[in-house]
Design a protein around this nucleic acid. Structure first.
Lengths: 215, 215
DNA sequence: ATCGAATAAATTATCGATAATCGATAATCT
DNA sequence: AGATTATCGATTATCGATAATTTATTCGAT
């Protein structure tokens, strides 16, 4: 019954404005603290208030904006403390996600993961930090999807949004050659089929992230 | 900036209808699969569609209902698989939450936790399964709040809603004398100040839950 | 009888307007 | 002056109606 994770009318006005606002928030066009005024947005896109409200409600849900009763909405802030908290959490569960996924992985999966790393490599060469970030998320998200735990997958989607947002806001450029160097041995450990080794590598990996992202 | 967790006008029509619907869902008046038709609800409470839509959007956010584009909303189902997934996740993080909290706990905190257990004991004697459940959540939630990790606290609030809903739907009555017997040694281990021992007890505790809740 | 197209009914999505609320400033009182 | 109340502009919350979409029903052709 619960198959629909996006309870949002695709190709509807509300979905379009939601998408547009989300993009603006994620790429930093709308910075933290910026006010979102229903009538202004409705005017900008030449639509009525209803779909704007619906879009804002959705963004609230995702934590991208915060609102107070009768006082409208502002783009939410996100602190490095929150990101550190997320990486602490990831350190606890991502090893599990990888371990659980491992027995299920096929040759196709490995090819796919290698492909993602190739694209990441390419993005590094192009200094395209958004693309690097996306490929990084894709690589890690893969295991969260595969590990067959709905609670963990849901959690990942939440965390992912916040991390992406933080990277967009902070002007860290996330384009280090090291990033690819980190993922290759991790993938090798996973391919080797040794769960303990893979888990250790994941935890090490998370630790490195905390440094690159936050310190 | 992000202090407002409830972006909802209290004392507004939308808040009232949201509360009413939530109550109906949580106490089972509206069972899984039941359709929620905007105009019907608006008619029932003699209000217009807008606040109903807003309330539904909020319930969607909490996972209590699911909706498909242009097809309205139905009360969501929740499976024992989802609950099992949650306890697997809790097994990974609740030990951490307890360990992190331990150095911060005061005598007042211990007294409070003991008080909660007393109330749980009382609830067991009264066969009041809702109250038992609430006290259980309060006990465990305490550490999620104390552990100083926003991501983990947020996650807890999410998980809590689902577990409570599952217990409300399933006719398991959650009133076992064992429950209190489990918490007492857990609290003792925490009071003892030995993190490793406390963590072990937490994991054991989670394991027992999986049995009592699901098998 | 069964199928599918056409139509009707039900429901959601969107609209534009009105009412309620907020924050700031001006006016009034002590 | 200092504090309290009234007013104003801006914005949100709510409304009732219309448009768009989905679901149910009818009806003719096979």
């Amino acid at each position: 019954m619960n198959e629909i994770p996006s309870p949002f009318p695709i190709n509807s006005i509300s979905f379009n404005v939601y998408t547009a606002l989300k993009k603006d928030i994620l790429d930093g066009t709308l910075g933290p603290g910026e006010r979102l005024i229903v009538l202004d947005i409705a005017g900008k896109y030449q639509i009525s208030q209803a779909p704007v409200r619906e879009a804002l409600e959705r963004l609230k849900q995702e934590g991208l904006i915060v609102g107070q009763p009768n006082k409208g909405s502002v783009v939410s802030d996100i602190t490095s403390k929150e990101i550190r908290d997320i990486f602490i959490l990831r350190e606890m569960i991502e090893g599990f996600a990888v371990k659980e996924s491992m027995p299920l992985l096929t040759e196709d999966d490995f090819r796919y993961l290698e492909h993602v790393l190739q694209e990441m490599d390419q993005a590094v060469k192009e200094y395209d930090s958004l693309k690097i970030l996306e490929k990084d998320m894709e690589f890690h998200g893969f295991f969260y999807r595969k590990c067959n735990n709905s609670a963990i997958l849901e959690l990942w989607n939440h965390m992912k949004t916040k991390v992406m947002r933080f990277m967009a806001i902070s002007n860290r450029h996330y384009s280090t050659k090291k990033l690819v160097d980190w993922h290759k041995p991790l993938l090798e450990a996973i391919k080797s089929g040794n769960p303990a080794e893979a888990e250790a590598k994941v935890i090490e990996h998370m630790h490195s992230y905390k440094t690159i992202h936050l310190d």
